[in-house]
Amino acid sequence: MPADNAGPEAQLLKGTVLIVEDESSLATILAGYFKKAGFGVTVTSNGLDAVDMARDDAVSVIVLDLGLPGIDGIEVCRRVRTFSDAYILMLTARVEEVDELIGLSVGADDYLTKPFSPRVLVARVKALLRRPRNGANHGTAGNGDSSDSAVAVGDVTIDPPARTVTRRDTSIALTKTEFDLLATLASQPGRVFTREQLMEAVWGGPAIGDDQLVDVHIGHLRKKLGAPDGSGPKIIQTVRGVGYRMEAG
């Protein structure tokens, strides 16, 4: 199904939204809200079809239901991530935190738990599309300036311009959200960033998301940056009651 013509705002944000939802009534409602906001919209209820549709270069954001029949949202996300860097916002009717963690760990950038307001969903998508893409500057939380130089902390090196992270010369694969969060912390090693500042830098503002998103992604980063034997520096430190900081190299 071809996407509808995008309006001026969607053209500015370069946003065509692929909605993958097997509840037809909900899919229709969401499509209506996105069209009203000026986005191009494509809808499918089938996970396999969604993978094929995601190959369209016009798709910038995928709104992906976790509980699809056939291959579920987790598998769709895994497959899409092998060839596309489109932003993925996952929808789930399950309140258990494990579903949120699994969804984010396979490459989703954000999530919403049902029931939710369609207006909030549209706001989240707009925030995703305003975030820096590959090759853009990062780390603009608060009054901080983005870093154009690689940062080394122990045996971990973060290179914001190249969007690469290595440990002991081994590349570490991060999602866009994980890298954006790490690059923000790396822009000023030693500085304490509040959760609100991190939400502003990575998700577009605290009104768009919730603090748990920061904690979930920090947990993923720590796992990916940690040595298999548990040795090495814990480069992301928790400052209780405030937020997080990256240890200075």
Rank of each mutant, 00 (worst) to 15 (best):
D57L: 14
V120P: 03
F34P: 15
I236Y: 00
G70I: 11
W203I: 06
Q197A: 15
D52E: 14
A50K: 07
A201H: 07
A58W: 08
V125E: 08
A173C: 13
P189L: 05
L185Y: 04
T194I: 01
V20P: 01
Q237S: 03
E97A: 09
D215K: 13
G190P: 04
T92G: 09
D99G: 08
T42F: 11
K176H: 12
L128P: 04
G67S: 13
R167N: 00
A123M: 14
R168A: 07
A186Y: 06
T92R: 04
F116G: 09
G230W: 03
M246V: 04
R131E: 10
K14P: 07
E96W: 13
R130G: 12
N134F: 15
P118L: 06
M199S: 13
V41E: 02
V80K: 07
E96H: 11
V122H: 02
D99T: 09
M53I: 15
D145T: 13
L101E: 09
V202K: 05
D109R: 03
V43H: 03
E23W: 05
G219M: 03
D49T: 10
I62L: 10
V95M: 10
S24D: 15
A27L: 05
R94K: 15
D65L: 07
T238K: 12
I62R: 05
P206I: 11
I158M: 00
P161E: 01
E96C: 08
K14I: 03
I172E: 01
A93R: 13
N143Y: 10
L121A: 01
A31K: 04
L181E: 05
S24E: 15
T44H: 09
L174C: 08
A207G: 03
R78S: 11
A141Q: 04
I158W: 00
A207L: 12
G209E: 14
G209N: 13
R191M: 09
D56M: 07
V156L: 00
D109A: 08
A227C: 12
V41L: 05
S149L: 09
E97I: 06
G38E: 06
A127Q: 08
L129T: 00
S60K: 05
Q237H: 09
D159V: 07
L18K: 04
R163D: 14
D52A: 13
G67P: 05
V95Q: 13
G107S: 07
G142N: 08
R240P: 00
F193M: 03
S105W: 00
N137V: 14
D155I: 06
L101C: 09
A108T: 02
E21W: 09
D22C: 11
T16N: 11
K223V: 15
D210Q: 15
K234R: 15
P132F: 02
H220P: 03
I208D: 02
V51K: 06
T113Y: 15
Q197F: 08
G142S: 10
